[in-house]
Design a protein around this nucleic acid. Structure first.
Lengths: 350, 350
DNA sequence: ACGCGTCACTAACGCGAGTTAGTGTCCCCC
DNA sequence: GGGGGACACTAACTCGCGTTAGTGACGCGT
């Protein structure tokens, strides 16, 4: 009958090893600066494993003032979470980083319409927060950051005093559009991944714009549409774009949205990549299996979570953390892009 | 300078309201059986909000013996987590259920090769566990369940004494295959979603088999292939299947795997649905935007997380929980299936 | 032989809340 | 006017661990 057996405490371990509780604590935490004889240490460790001792998390948290938990705040609605192609991978990376330091990850999905997530931190449930997908209009965040709580933004956000870890959206987007330009396309549209209140959306649009400028192409805002995270919004955005200003190529700032956009292109009787070339962003797991396999900008989702995690752990431990960490992207060329067949129609480049 | 300000404790609230700490606790926890005068209650609540008081999570956990945390164990490798199309949505549902009871969710990704996750429970980090994707060979799980810890399996597993919450895999799969049979296809293959050590894979295969039997069709094991969660494995499985035993239609027990399978069909110069009809399973967010839009079996991922969460909360609270909860699936017919054009080749049905 | 310093360990307090047992006050009713 | 309840509240203990201050034993140097 193992059920009724009381959880062993550090006192039980101490008794069994014939030492005091303090010694047990010193041994199990490898407390620097204290010296414990090898045989005592052995006795304690043996007693602990024999009893199946696991320190009580809450007690540790209360006594030590640290919960050993990192919070992961998802500033998205449930639907957006469901459709997010990289979230699970980022979470994996974050959890892996946490584990190396003996931390765990607590998720806090929080619809943008919901209020504050103060409680997580103020209740010391979590020692720090990784905030994913921050929006420019997040009030509670600013307060928390100003109060000195350890926060790391996954995504950038001006005006908030917290380090940010992000992928280099601007250069990734620019690279994608340069690729299209290099293939001979000139009339290039852009569908954002999300409303521009999300900083990543703004940055990717900036990258699109700067690639056009660098190539001497005009920025035409009738070629730009905003999507809203999911494939359906991409479908609608592309339909609008086709109706208004038939582009030759499109940079879609999210693979999921691109899937919807391509469906719209197909329904319009046009072919990808020959009639309209498409570049996505994210390189989700399914990107290579789409029809056509999607040319896209690889976002290192796992590494992103890992980097955010280590940054937050550093911040929690009081170590210095760079204000801004940008992870590189990589253009993955597949078959949704092809050389323009009507390059001559535009005459020689500028 | 708000940074230096000490966190308010319940004693501070008590002092400000002019009552004792016990009264504060009674008021804030709505303790049944005790009567507090309305004006005292008001004073306490006002003092709490004025001070911005949030009870310390660890202290509450230690004193009350409950962490108010649900653990979510992912028995998958990091790659599998990344490619899982429904995981984030299930997590959303679980978190929503947890929140209604004032609980939070802690995720514990645990590679199948890794050892035990005892620590989570034995350290009372979590009050209970939802174990996703259990495998038949999970030793630690059995021990934990036998020790009486609150565990809910998301997915079924014989021989473990814990309630399970799952989607009705068998009937969903049967429904999918019946759909193919109803369209006139007779030589129907099956690609599993995962190795058969995963119970969901076995159940979906069982559903496939029972649909064949019910229709009087033979079960031919050369028409069955195992995949391994991701699209790449689906691609390889389909390639093997095509090389060995060209089927007319395929039931692929996962949309993600189906995406890979369809890519392989396309590369073989065959068309979906006319040459080979395909039914998937899960109805991931992108299923409707694939080419062709995928006929599939809808798995209510959010509801699944929600159901697992409420079941676990009931279990934690000592309320009775049914041994087995099966959520219904729904066949979503899109365009990856079409009537057989060569039905006559088989002659009239049996 | 004495003092000083390390070494190895222990006693005891504190973290912040939940909770039990107990205390005083007021009102009602016989 | 005195006994008996409800009522409203408090003092004090508890949870399990981290941590500080302190103690005894032993070795080494002069």
């Amino acid at each position: 009958m193992t059920i009724a057996r009381r959880r062993p405490t550090s006192a039980d371990v101490a008794a069994r090893a014939g030492v005091s509780r303090t010694t047990v604590s010193f041994v199990l935490n490898d407390r620097p600066g204290t010296s414990i004889s090898p045989q005592t240490r052995r006795r304690v460790l043996d007693a602990a494993t024999e009893l199946g001792y696991h320190p009580h998390a809450s007690a540790r948290g209360l006594a030590g003032g640290k919960s050993h938990i990192l919070g992961f705040v998802l500033r998205q609605s449930a639907e957006q979470v469901a459709g997010d192609g990289t979230l699970a991978e980022t979470l994996s990376g974050l959890a892996a980083a946490a584990r190396t330091a003996g931390f765990r990850v607590m998720v806090e999905p929080l619809d943008p319409s919901d209020g504050s997530y103060d409680a997580l931190l103020r209740a010391q449930h979590a020692d720090g927060l990784v905030v994913s997908g921050p929006r420019v209009d997040d009030a509670g965040l600013a307060t928390l950051a100003a109060d000195g709580f350890p926060i790391v933004l996954q995504g950038s956000l001006a005006g908030i005093d917290a380090p940010s870890v992000d992928v280099d959206n601007v250069s990734g987007a620019r690279r994608a559009v340069e690729h299209l330009i290099g293939l001979g396309w000139r009339r290039i549209g852009c569908i954002t991944n999300a409303p521009l209140a999300y900083t990543a959306a703004q940055e990717r649009l900036d990258g699109y714009r700067s690639a056009l400028e660098a190539a001497g192409l005009p920025f035409d805002e009738t070629l730009v549409e905003e999507a809203d995270f999911d494939a359906g919004s991409g479908h609608r955005a592309m339909a609008r774009l086709l109706a208004r200003a038939r582009p030759d190529a499109v940079f879609v700032a999210s693979d999921v949205v691109a899937f919807g956009a391509i469906a719209a292109i197909r329904e319009a009787g046009l072919r990808v990549p020959d009639d309209i070339s498409v570049v996505g962003f994210d390189d989700i797991a399914l990107a290579g299996f789409f029809d056509p396999p999607l040319t896209t900008v690889r976002l290192p989702a796992y590494d992103l979570g890992m980097a955010a995690g280590t940054a937050l752990l550093d911040r929690v431990a009081g170590r210095p953390v760079p204000d801004r960490t940008l992870l590189p992207t990589e253009l993955i060329v597949r078959s949704s892009t092809a050389p323009s067949t009507k390059a001559e129609a535009y005459g020689p480049g500028p």
